[in-house]
């Protein structure tokens, strides 16, 4: 009952806020779930061609990006730990590092896509349309899934930047950091989706 009394007094409910965020993350997982579902169906039908197409992708850039995202998840967690330990400056520092790493990820992605475009490997291109159907699907999925993930990275950057502002303005502080936690949860989601995308596109060859 104490939790509910708390709700009525202060109009603040951290447990509820976390619950809402988790529900939202479920919906995000399901959103990508639809794509993972399509991927598995087409991979099952076109095993060989998916295998061949995956060889074209550069696992080094992929690995590098995986390391970047994992590190950024760590710095995000550290930012939350820092604010809990009343170290506002350190928390802001870690949040900025997270944003920086996220930009690093996007820049890498940009170069990776640019190389593909140079080889005329994009949806509807002549080179791609002359390939077997399985490879066309592989690249279709590759662009849609990493593209949607990239969009989430951009949203994450905006979100964390917003949190940094709130931290600077002391709205996020050692007593009230549930917003930062929620942003952290979102960022970990972006991370974990990449953890699945990476092997599916780059490693299974």
């Amino acid at each position: 009952m104490s939790a509910q009394d708390h709700v009525i007094h202060a109009h603040r409910d951290d447990v509820g806020a976390r619950m809402g965020m988790w529900l939202f993350l479920f919906t995000e997982l399901l959103l990508f779930g639809g794509l993972f579902f399509i991927y598995s169906v087409y991979r099952f039908i076109n095993q060989e061609q998916f295998h061949l197409a995956a060889k074209e992708l550069n696992p080094i850039i992929g690995t590098f990006n995986t390391i970047i995202l994992l590190t950024s998840s760590l710095t995000m967690a550290l930012a939350i730990a820092a604010i809990q330990k009343k170290n506002k400056g350190l928390s802001i520092f870690f949040q900025l590092i997270t944003i920086l790493l996220a930009f690093g990820f996007l820049i890498n992605k940009f170069f990776e896509w640019r190389v593909k475009l140079h080889h005329d490997l994009f949806p509807g291109s002549e080179v791609l349309l002359n390939k077997p159907k399985g490879e066309i699907l592989f690249y279709g999925l590759y662009y849609v899934m990493t593209g949607l993930h990239g969009l989430h990275v951009i949203i994450g950057i905006v979100l964390i930047a917003f949190m940094t502002r709130l931290t600077i303005k002391n709205i996020i502080n050692q007593d009230s950091y549930v917003k930062l936690e929620a942003a952290g949860l979102y960022w970990h989601l972006v991370d974990i989706i990449w953890i699945f995308l990476f092997p599916l596109f780059y490693l299974i060859t």
Partner: peptide, 13 residues
């Protein structure tokens, strides 16, 4: 973009 995920001509279903 015409990625073809649902287009039989491009392998989709």
């Amino acid at each position: 973009l015409g990625v073809g995920l649902f287009d039989p001509a491009l392998g989709g279903d």
